[in-house]
């Protein structure tokens, strides 16, 4: 009656979903995010989208969005999605660092992980919780994307046929964007003692990694490829793209996630519980 590795993955992942949506702490986080997102939708997103529509009507040569560096917004057939894309590229990686920080650290410090590890492998726990954190974020991202679709349709219901092909692009892209951040938090959480430590280390490591690699690449341009190791490295390039072309950089977060997950699994396998 020994359940297989994948069965354990599913059980652990399902338990994480329960933690992500059915506990008091998670409901509080959800409500907070919903309120913040409501105001983002209502003001910056709606106003920016309306401005884009007005500019398109005026056929002006130079847009205000070109001036502030967000010219690529105009390439999206639906202005709301263009604005959402830029907001989401900033918000979700930061949110990922907070949401995925406590994959194993609190449970390890409390001793709860011992109750689980004696009934499953460390690999199942590590990957099960990572997948759980990813599914939770995917649902948050989807909810935010669908709410943007709702905003678009309230302005012009005829845009539905244009919106439907772009919606999965946005969701898949954003899931790929948060993937290496979640993997980084999984690796950090396997090592540090608390959520706060994981978050602080994530910020420090990210800043030092970015600083050191950028400095190296400045003096030795041949080392510029190392920038690929920095989670979120591709974000500024992605912001300039639209539609299916945004997936052209998907290999970067996938590669980063793979490296970080291998590192995290190595830490988890050796960590005292």
């Amino acid at each position: 009656m020994q359940p297989a590795f994948f069965n354990h993955l599913l059980l652990i992942c399902a338990f994480e979903l329960k933690r992500g949506f059915a506990t008091r702490k998670s409901i509080l986080s959800l409500v907070t995010f919903a309120v913040i997102w409501y105001f983002i939708l209502l003001y910056p997103l709606r106003f920016a989208a309306e401005l884009l529509v007005q500019e398109k009507g005026l056929q002006a040569e130079l847009s205000i969005f070109d001036v502030i560096g967000f010219g690529s917004i105009q390439h999206w057939p639906i202005p709301e999605f263009g604005v959402f894309w830029h907001f989401a590229l900033m918000i979700f990686p930061m949110l990922s660092i907070m949401l995925a920080a406590d994959q194993t650290c609190s449970d390890r410090e409390r001793g709860t992980l011992r109750f689980i590890v004696i009934r499953s492998s460390r690999n199942s726990v590590f990957f099960g919780r990572f997948i759980g954190a990813m599914v939770i974020q995917a649902l948050w991202i989807s909810a935010a994307a669908f709410s943007t679709l709702g905003l678009t349709l309230t302005r012009d219901p005829s845009l539905l046929s244009f919106a439907i092909p772009d919606l999965p692009i946005l969701i898949v892209n954003l899931i790929l964007v948060v993937l290496p951040f979640t993997a980084m938090m999984a690796a950090l959480s396997a090592k540090v003692k608390s959520t706060r430590q994981a978050t602080l280390w994530a910020i420090l490591i990210w800043m030092f990694l970015a600083g050191i690699i950028s400095s190296l690449a400045y003096y030795l341009p041949v080392l510029a490829f190392l920038k690929c190791l920095i989670p979120g490295y591709q974000l500024s390039d992605m912001a300039q793209l639209s539609g299916w072309r945004t997936l052209s950089l998907a290999y970067i977060p996938l590669l980063q996630s793979l490296i970080l997950l291998i590192l995290g699994r190595w830490i988890m396998a050796r960590q005292a519980l």
Partner: peptide, 25 residues
């Protein structure tokens, strides 16, 4: 395990059922 505590976010039944399921129930 010495000093190990259950997860404060879930009820005893939820956690013990989860543990039993990990054991193949």
């Amino acid at each position: 395990p010495q000093d190990a505590r259950l997860d404060p976010s879930f009820t005893l039944a939820e956690q013990l059922v989860f543990y039993a399921r990990l054991q193949g129930f």
